[in-house]
């Protein structure tokens, strides 16, 4: 079990600090009436960090813990789909996606072999026909 809200807030604080640090190198405004490119993101980041700290203080007695399986599912989907996209950029959508779908269905608990196979072949073909052939949005290349 881990405190998910705290983890998100920690990430957002790190993001806010990065914004403030990076904005230091931005140039000045071109006009004396303008606030320049740095002021707004800096201000937003500072307010965000302040609100996070206030919220953490107010909710200090009700920390919400969630199971690690949540992290596992998110990483599995992120990693799996990311990996499939990476391979598809080299081999092409139509070649990679049927295998990716079949693996995805199997890993997410679908054991109907025939249905899985039919879906894995037909659905990417349908998507390719719709986007690539009918709408002329090229997708075979990634």
């Amino acid at each position: 079990m881990f405190p998910l809200t705290h983890l998100i807030y920690l990430g957002l604080i790190a993001f806010g600090v990065l914004v403030v640090v990076t904005a230091q190198s931005f140039p000045q405004a071109l006009s004396s009436r303008d606030i320049g490119p740095a002021a707004l993101p800096e201000a937003l980041a500072v307010i965000m960090i302040a609100l996070i700290l206030v919220d953490l203080y107010l909710s200090r007695r009700r920390v919400r813990f969630v199971s690690f399986s949540l992290l596992r599912v998110a990483l599995a989907v992120g990693g799996g789909v990311g990996g499939a996209i990476l391979v598809a950029t080299h081999l092409g959508f139509l070649i990679v996606w049927p295998f990716a779908l079949f693996a995805g269905l199997w890993l997410s608990g679908s054991r109907a072999l025939l249905a899985n196979t039919l879906y894995s072949i037909c659905f990417p073909a349908m998507v390719w026909l719709l986007f690539d052939r009918l709408l002329h949005i090229p997708i075979a290349s990634f």
Partner: peptide, 15 residues
């Protein structure tokens, strides 16, 4: 079944 819904959403999202 849920796995089919999930794979449909993910495929359409990627494309």
């Amino acid at each position: 079944p849920t796995p089919f819904i999930v794979m449909t959403i993910l495929t359409l999202s990627v494309v």
